[in-house]
């Protein structure tokens, strides 16, 4: 597995889109830091800079889609999977190798992106009370978001192996992880016009378990105190973190098992 991961990382770092995206994110962070710096220091400080991060958790889903694309590299169309199979790598090794590579790249990207934002924040913004609380709040948000990101990654990986259409992968991934609750709400609104009362209730209840809904819960938790003092944080509950891990585990295991069982029987061209 180590050999497989090394090879995938060797390949990914040679893909220009990776560096373009990192550069774009870095440019966005520089702009954000600039705006934070020129804001009144009575309002903006390091703690508030930190608790801004959870509001961008949904970006993790977009990153998952992109990293899946970078690692998988449209192998269904290029036909390079046959080189791996022909050498004797089992289909399980290939699938898990790709998935683990995606996870490794994702986690590395999160670390880099966070560091590129938080380190300048630390030096550029005033430090006041509430820093530790903010850091704990950020840590809790990340702990809750991590399984959702891993689930998004696993789902994208499953879709990559299942279909040769990149467009379909992106459409389904966005539909599930970025627009899931919106789609369900629209369905509820339409179904509500007919005799589907119990179904609508079930769907409304299920909405709170969708990844994008959970992310929104996470980033609404840190609340600003607009009087310019340190932010008063509403602590992220253990229940929410558990819920995120359950949902994340679902999106890791179910798509993986379905896609893997299909991949085992698939003709490799």
């Amino acid at each position: 597995m180590f050999n497989y991961l090394s090879a995938e990382i060797y390949k990914v770092v040679r893909r220009p889109p990776l560096w373009v995206c990192l550069a774009a994110i870095f440019a966005g962070e520089v702009l954000l830091l600039y705006i934070e710096k020129i804001s009144s220091s009575a309002v903006m400080n390091f703690a508030q800079g930190v608790i801004f991060v959870p509001r961008l958790l949904m970006v993790g889903f977009l990153a998952a889609f992109l990293i899946s694309d970078l690692v998988y590299s449209n192998q269904g169309k290029t036909g390079t999977l046959k080189n791996e199979v022909a050498f004797g790598l089992t289909r399980l090794q290939i699938y898990l190798g790709k998935l683990c590579s995606m996870w490794v790249v994702s986690i590395a990207a999160v670390v880099v992106v966070l560091a590129l934002y938080l380190v300048p924040c630390y030096f550029l913004l005033d430090h006041r009370a509430g820093v530790m609380e903010a850091m704990w709040g950020l840590g809790a948000s990340l702990l809750a978001a991590l399984p959702l990101w891993l689930g998004a990654q696993a789902t994208c990986c499953a879709l990559c192996f299942a279909t040769r259409s990149e467009g379909l992968v992106w459409t389904l991934s966005i539909g599930i992880f970025l627009a899931g609750s919106t789609i369900v709400n629209i369905a509820v609104a339409l179904l509500g016009l007919g005799p589907f009362g119990p179904l609508c209730e079930f769907l409304v209840h299920m909405t709170s378990w969708l990844p994008d809904s959970l992310c929104q819960v996470l980033f609404l938790i840190p609340e600003f105190n607009w009087e310019g003092r340190y932010p008063e944080l509403v602590r992220i509950s253990v229940d929410i973190i558990q819920q995120c891990w359950i949902v994340g585990a679902f999106w890791v295991f179910v798509p993986t098992l379905l896609s893997l069982s299909n991949f085992y029987r698939k003709e490799i061209h």
């Binding site: 497989y4 090879a7 060797y10 290029t78």
Partner: peptide, 23 residues
Amino acid sequence: IETPSFYPYLTARENLEYYRMQR
């Protein structure tokens, strides 16, 4: 088997190095 397949955005050397590492 059939047309050889490699990653289009890598050079010959990089493609072979990728497979050397993987294997």
